[in-house]
Computed example of a mutant assay.
Amino acid sequence: MSSEWGRIDDAGTVFVKTADGEREVGSWQAGDPEAGLAYYIRRYEDLQTEVALLTKRLQSGAGDAKATKSQAMTLHASLPTVAAVGNLAALDTQLVALITAADAKMGEQAEAREAAKAGAIAKKEALAAEAEAIAETSTQWKAAGDRLRTIVDEWKLIKGIDRKTDDTLWKRFAAARDAFGKRRGSHFANLDTERETAKSIKERLVAEAEALSVSDDWRETADALKDLMGQWKSAPRANRSTEDALWKRFRAAQDAFFERRSGVFAERDAEQVQNLKEKDAIIAEAVALDVSDPRHAQVALRDLQERLEAIGHVPRDAMPRVEARMRAAEQRVREALDAEWKRGATESNPFLAQLRERLAEAEAKLARAQASGDAGRIAKAEADVASRKALLPE
């Protein structure tokens, strides 16, 4: 019994047809020769199916090219001795094509792996460079520390780098991370020192403020407290809890002083307002003095002046007005005294009395001349009045 690609003889020996002639592939002693030949044909078909599956998986990308080539080469090497009946030459051609395709795919995959490797190396180099930049310049200690921890997680997800390169890059990253840790540790050590220094400075400022809070030297103490506030602002900060506690004490000392000063000033202001009312009343008396008797007015003024001096301070903005009104009243009495003195001096001098009488006569003649309307008489009378006025003292 025979088929297109093989036969089975009467003894049960099975042959396959090849380009080099027939080749014995096995024997069938189990019964029907047709079944025996069909068995070896099915084995060929299984080989066909296996080759077709390998080809399809390679083309789809689901199959590994290297493994596919290995399987294809194994199958190809088995063809000269394979126990199967079918078109072995066609199968050989398919396997050669599959091996060639696997080689090409392996080349593509190698290029892809190299590209992926280069990309992975670039990513880790970028992460290492970022870590080095953080180590060198960053002062955002918490954010930078968090970022370095995130870099570790990102680093673990990057694959496809050879061990030597990966180890070299990891050493760069680890060195940068260690450098950042040392710089951060040094920073916080210095910060602790600065905070202790700040604590000492501000404890001293608090002690000074508390000592000044009981002072009654209002102006100098207020200036001193303002100076302490300036020192406080320019001093470094202690840690938050210490800073807050010291600030509360410092502020409380200032508040105690200024509240006490405000109370004293309020009491003093009320007293000065009352003083102003009293002084205004006394000045009103001085302004109303009767200066027709200058000597009596002078005595009364002296009494008012003594009463005025006995009253304490008035508000600063009222002082110019108070002083001006009192000076005016005093000037009025002085002018009355001066006028009385001049009158007395004139009346006790006979010569001056005579000059005044003649001046009065000259002024009477001038009046009569003016009444007559005679210009000559008027001019002569005016000249006579002027000459007699010139003889009198100021």
Results as ranks from 00 to 15, higher is better:
residue 160 G to D: 03
residue 291 V to N: 13
residue 382 E to N: 05
residue 354 Q to F: 04
residue 84 A to F: 03
residue 312 G to Q: 11
residue 86 G to R: 00
residue 31 G to E: 04
residue 55 T to A: 15
residue 328 A to S: 11
residue 297 A to T: 05
residue 78 S to R: 11
residue 118 A to H: 03
residue 36 G to A: 05
residue 46 D to H: 15
residue 362 A to W: 02
residue 165 T to H: 02
residue 56 K to W: 00
residue 287 V to N: 07
residue 158 I to H: 06
residue 337 L to Y: 02
residue 132 E to N: 08
residue 21 G to E: 09
residue 89 A to C: 02
residue 244 D to I: 02
residue 187 H to S: 12
residue 220 E to Y: 03
residue 106 M to H: 10
residue 178 D to K: 11
residue 201 I to S: 10
residue 112 A to C: 00
residue 383 A to L: 10
residue 157 L to E: 14
residue 79 L to T: 08
residue 27 S to Q: 09
residue 30 A to K: 11
residue 141 W to Q: 12
residue 392 L to G: 03
residue 284 A to Q: 11
residue 382 E to S: 11
residue 181 G to R: 08
residue 31 G to P: 05
residue 107 G to A: 14
residue 48 Q to D: 10
residue 248 K to C: 03
residue 42 R to A: 14
residue 9 D to K: 08
residue 147 R to P: 02
residue 353 A to K: 15
residue 154 E to A: 09
residue 326 M to D: 05
residue 305 Q to S: 07
residue 11 A to L: 08
residue 6 G to H: 05
residue 145 G to T: 06
residue 346 T to G: 09
residue 7 R to G: 06
residue 182 K to G: 01
residue 159 K to Y: 04
residue 292 S to F: 01
residue 26 G to F: 05
residue 345 A to G: 04
residue 390 A to W: 03
residue 273 V to G: 06
residue 377 R to C: 06
residue 251 R to T: 00
residue 193 T to L: 15
residue 207 A to H: 00
residue 161 I to R: 02
residue 1 M to P: 03
residue 202 K to L: 08
residue 291 V to L: 11
residue 326 M to K: 04
residue 373 G to E: 11
residue 203 E to F: 05
residue 175 A to P: 01
residue 175 A to W: 09
residue 198 A to F: 03
residue 203 E to Q: 14
residue 280 D to Y: 05
residue 194 E to W: 02
residue 112 A to D: 04
residue 257 F to I: 06
residue 177 R to M: 05
residue 244 D to N: 14
residue 366 L to Q: 11
residue 277 K to H: 10
residue 206 V to F: 09
residue 88 L to M: 14
residue 154 E to S: 10
residue 57 R to K: 15
residue 299 V to G: 12
residue 291 V to E: 12
residue 205 L to P: 06
residue 215 S to C: 04
residue 380 K to W: 00
residue 129 A to H: 08
residue 140 Q to L: 11
residue 71 Q to E: 13
residue 272 Q to G: 04
residue 386 A to L: 01
residue 249 R to D: 01
residue 371 A to C: 03
residue 178 D to F: 00
residue 227 D to T: 15
residue 33 P to R: 10
residue 174 A to W: 04
residue 148 L to A: 04
residue 81 T to E: 11
residue 224 A to D: 07
residue 217 D to L: 10
residue 324 A to I: 00
residue 101 A to S: 15
residue 202 K to P: 02
residue 135 A to I: 07
residue 170 W to C: 09
residue 92 D to Q: 15
residue 227 D to W: 04
residue 161 I to H: 04
residue 267 E to R: 12
residue 49 T to D: 13
residue 190 N to A: 14
residue 393 P to Y: 10
residue 165 T to N: 14
residue 219 R to N: 13
residue 125 E to Y: 03
residue 240 R to G: 01
residue 385 V to E: 08
residue 309 E to G: 12
residue 161 I to M: 02
residue 264 V to G: 09
residue 281 A to G: 01
residue 122 A to D: 12
residue 122 A to R: 11
residue 25 V to T: 00
residue 156 K to S: 09
residue 10 D to N: 15
residue 193 T to Q: 15
residue 110 A to M: 01
residue 274 Q to R: 13
residue 248 K to Q: 12
residue 205 L to I: 06
residue 378 I to P: 01
residue 341 W to H: 14
residue 52 A to F: 06
residue 62 A to K: 14
residue 210 E to K: 06
residue 126 A to D: 14
residue 116 A to K: 15
residue 239 N to I: 07
residue 268 R to I: 07
residue 339 A to D: 10
residue 128 A to L: 07
residue 269 D to V: 02
residue 222 A to W: 00
residue 255 D to W: 08
residue 284 A to L: 01
residue 41 I to P: 01
